[in-house]
Design a protein around this nucleic acid. Sequence first.
DNA 1: TCGACGATTGCC
DNA 2: GCAATCGTCGAG
Length: 170
Amino acid sequence: MRLTRDFFSRDALSVAPDLLGKTLVRKFETGEELRLTINETEAYRGEEDLGCHASKGRTPRTEVMYHQGGLVYVYLIYGMYWLLNFTSGAEGHPQAVLIRGSAEIEGPGRIGQALMLDKSFYGEDLISSERLWVEENTNITIKPEITTSPRVGIDYAGKYWAGRHWRFRG
DNA sequence: TCGACGATTGCC
DNA sequence: GCAATCGTCGAG
């Protein structure tokens, strides 16, 4: 069953750990489906979070994070990898959850490659999209053991924000 | 308009 | 250890 708007409308710190164990589905134009089990996420939350792109304010790039939850926020990193994020929270609250890894494919850059993401996915609605969405995983019967740790690659955000344990693995 | 840099990865 | 590679943003 596809995850609802309500699921993504909650705070990023609730959505990020709850996405662990969920199934990410990408349907290609060929009709072929790629299904990945999410096992690693990170929360980016608000303009005050110096590790969040929205800390620079509302710009063309960060715009979608200010919208409702359940939308796709993709951006090009190092000129070669598209990183996948889902917006969360309510309208006006810039938040996003980075999909950092899955059981089948590890690494945010590799996930983007496997899903063949590009700029056209910016703003895609996970609740109605025909090519990308998230489902409940019916195979999992027990809730995964979740561990937390500091987010990756944001030392520039300073000791406080880089030190928040907003990376979730399960 | 210009230059620095990044929520990464893979090869030397 | 470092190059690849380009959109974004702040400075000039």
